[in-house]
Design a protein around this nucleic acid. Sequence first.
DNA 1: CCTACGATGAGAGCACTGCTCTCGAAAGGA
DNA 2: TCCTTTCGAGAGCAGTGCTCTCATCGTAGG
Lengths: 221, 221
Amino acid sequence: MRARSRQKIMDQILESAQNSLEKQGPAALSLRAIAREIGMVSSGIYRYVASRDELLTLLIRQQFEHLAKHVRGALEMAPESPGLRLGVLCEAMLNWSRLHHAEWDLLYGTPVPDFKVPRVPEEDDPGVAVIREILVLAAQGLPRTISGSYPMLSDATAPLVPGLTESQVQAAVFVWTGLIGLISAERRGWFGPGFEEFASVMLPGFVENAVVTLGFDSTAS
Amino acid sequence: MRARSRQKIMDQILESAQNSLEKQGPAALSLRAIAREIGMVSSGIYRYVASRDELLTLLIRQQFEHLAKHVRGALEMAPESPGLRLGVLCEAMLNWSRLHHAEWDLLYGTPVPDFKVPRVPEEDDPGVAVIREILVLAAQGLPRTISGSYPMLSDATAPLVPGLTESQVQAAVFVWTGLIGLISAERRGWFGPGFEEFASVMLPGFVENAVVTLGFDSTAS
DNA sequence: CCTACGATGAGAGCACTGCTCTCGAAAGGA
DNA sequence: TCCTTTCGAGAGCAGTGCTCTCATCGTAGG
């Protein structure tokens, strides 16, 4: 009974926080405002959440889960060809970023102070879902061998997708960070008015490049 | 006399702001703290700066100038080969991001609310210096033709570097956003402890890929 | 030279934030 | 039933951005 009501209030807090996040972005998130909204005095909320940063961290996890669900959902009904699947993944990311501006900023913008970032090696963390999907695809490619690379990253990503070559991992990371960079460029309006959706134009080319980077040409059409 | 003292105080404000930025990051920037430091009552600072966001915008311009200077300085003593120059540019960016953590976050992290982003088409804006250098390099390459692209971006970047093909512009943008994405990934610690400087390992491979993307192979070694 | 005006600095104040502390009440297990 | 844990309420501290008003001071015009 006690635990149930506690869970209920916790859910209310998260819901209200999510609401505020969507409407006003991460910077405007206020514990006092949330407490007010769920009908609680401002100090009471600290019985449920240790600090503003902790709440933001909870929100980040939640949003990573939503993003992962969105991307996986798109991949489910995608064809088998790794090149096409990659295109679907990229489009899903772009779509999500457009539907959830503030959430994208929260995940891929300036980090919350003292936020513990989800690490690639930790398998259960929703923050690694996207790079894992890319790694799965990278396993099906033969990327150019990278000169002078170290067997570091492949060890780090082994818990996610084992048995990849260093070149495959590097290619996957390039695609991953490149995609986030491209979408962030659109989100932040680096091309000014008239180019609010320029990533739509760029995405096909980006995927073509990524297919080369991941070395899909030699294995699949 | 009046104007000179005004300029002096303005410089003090910017210097103090820069100081705080370096030490505590953009989020901690406080007009009151700055006013305190330069020996002024909190309300007085509004005679010089309209709002906190305006000061942040000023800082952003300043930091873009610093970054541009850093990158151009590195390129000055670089060889002629576009591939090598690209490598120098990428390393300069990575270096700067490591020397100036908070400044990097300010430039490429979550945007300041209501901040007017420097647009690519505006030639005099320091925010476009890096993409301009990449465009200059892209002019010397023959990137793969992108299928179904629109003659949009090349128009937008024409004020910076005229006469580029749409494929060249797209390739340049991929390299630009990819580089920022890669460096941001390092900055935000997406690979957890032990990989604080993983971009060093990745950079050679990134440049190799970028050389392919920009189509330098066919023109220069 | 002196006056009037505009720029400037000081101070008080408003509304808000995160966060801490204490105190009384309620709920639950013993 | 008692007693411990949990919880909500309230006051309070230190800080923020920003807006007023009021007095001062430099300078430009008469």
